[in-house]
Design a protein around this nucleic acid. Sequence first.
DNA 1: TTGTACGCGTTATCAG
DNA 2: CTGATAACGCGTACAA
Lengths: 333, 333
Amino acid sequence: MATIKDIAQAAGVSLATVSRVINNGPKVGNDTRKRVKKIMEEMGYRPNANARALVTKRSASLGVVIAELHDPFFAMLAHGVESVTRKNNVQILLSAGSIEKETELRAIETLLEHRVEAMVVHSKALDDETLIGFAKQVPGFVLINRYIPEIANRCVWLDNVTGGRLMAEYAINQGHKHVAVISSQYRIDDPNHRLEGIRNAIDNANLSLPESMIEYATPDQEGGELAMQNLLATGAKFTAVLAYNDAMASGAMTMLQDHGIAVPDQVSVMGYDDVLLAKYCRPKLTTLRYPVEMMAAKAAELALKYASGSMPEDGLTFKYTPTVVKRDSIVRV
Amino acid sequence: MATIKDIAQAAGVSLATVSRVINNGPKVGNDTRKRVKKIMEEMGYRPNANARALVTKRSASLGVVIAELHDPFFAMLAHGVESVTRKNNVQILLSAGSIEKETELRAIETLLEHRVEAMVVHSKALDDETLIGFAKQVPGFVLINRYIPEIANRCVWLDNVTGGRLMAEYAINQGHKHVAVISSQYRIDDPNHRLEGIRNAIDNANLSLPESMIEYATPDQEGGELAMQNLLATGAKFTAVLAYNDAMASGAMTMLQDHGIAVPDQVSVMGYDDVLLAKYCRPKLTTLRYPVEMMAAKAAELALKYASGSMPEDGLTFKYTPTVVKRDSIVRV
DNA sequence: TTGTACGCGTTATCAG
DNA sequence: CTGATAACGCGTACAA
């Protein structure tokens, strides 16, 4: 591939001059500029981003760490980031880290080796200290879907406790007194927080949520089916089911319907996240809206801003609160 | 950030030695190696991928061009690529190109500036010559979901004509004589090919597909709804609807149900692609399986292989054929 | 076993 | 307005 040197030679000028026309430098004769541009065109010249990054110490790239592109939630997250990087002519480097300590760490390290200026990371497996350490050494380091007090201004997160509470309150307000919960089996914050919120609401309403009414499974459709199957097997009585996310909710609905139980007429179901399938499944899912895309865009903007020097105020954090999206999977009883 | 030089100084050795221990070079004293490693650890040294790429002329990265992460289809595509890059310790650079000539071109150019070794590109807007040009100058250039005869061995694609035919044949075999089609309004190959296949099957069965039975709209759920609305408005008679993709099929089903028309009892619906929602929507969608993920993985492997020197045989190409996935959205009449 | 010196493609700082 | 030339961080022949 042609280099700046080749161009210089072909145009009969110095490297410096070529470099100037590339970067629209200030002082170049109009005719030389034209000539050089033409030659660049002819030789198919493309500046080498690596060389440029080396000398300028700015890579014009943003790293993203997520678990799985496969998952619609992460796809939306990535899309949110992409919308702002595109606007800023910044390249995305993507690393997947599958919710395991080791892989998440490697994902971040790799990105750092590439000297990304900014990064948006979704980490569940890494501990606070490790993350704080990264934040300290990388100005443009921003966490999404996680809150760590020491680096509050680097966190864009969702208030899952409130989310859980809102969810349960809505069901309760619809007259449901016996609710079951389908949660994620992963021992990370999110399910715990959502469950905590649910418990709060149930306590406040003087209802009860026995352990036997909570099932844990993988946070996908199969998990939802399985959890519902278990719930049905125990013969538990409930009129509403609160699921950890939309996929589980959908699985739960399928299983109910397969058992000849009508949704929502006999049993109501609520999801969480409001990913695409919430609108597609039948009945359409009443769920909690998690504005990931917006939040991811915010995180990317922050990361870029911090990376470019302007550091944040200390108190600040970026908390979002989910809201109930009313659709068809729950009825008043 | 600490450089190789800093390490050398701190360890009291030369740059070369440090470089050797970094790359597990062959000839380094065991004690010096240990010492250097320890210092690297202490100083938090991270090799600079840019500098390394510059000198080795290998970037250990693969570029991906897709339209929208948002779209589940592209999310699966990206996931397929990611599964192989992860195995090969290769970094993904992602560029979105939204099916417009200008942006697709920019996406590819940007990736090239970053000197990615390989790239998997999904391009619909760019013309054959442009793409052939890129293939000529970048050994690791592979197209997905597109076939260009001149660079057949760089193409991993789906036989959409056969797909369309299979789809229609299946409906016809179920006894449907009056089928309507909901197609994409974009003037790209895919809808044309699928339609062509459908027409072939219908002709072979001595049935007819008048233009009035074909509606065009955006290839998403709204488009599906709209198209179905138009179809219903014209008072056309049909017992089966063949949709361009699953999203449109889902939209069509919604609209039918909203009009009190039972699916599949009164009208059958078929989708295409078999993305996640095909399993989630009710009734579950009978559709054509497009093994994107597998194909994307194949494309990534090819790209990496070509990039590393081994060029392909000339006749070869990588054609996949979709298969009917039988679910619940179609009945025998 | 270790060190020296050069080059990778660019930008930036000087002189002219 | 233009041209040398020194970095940037690293790999690698070639010496020692």
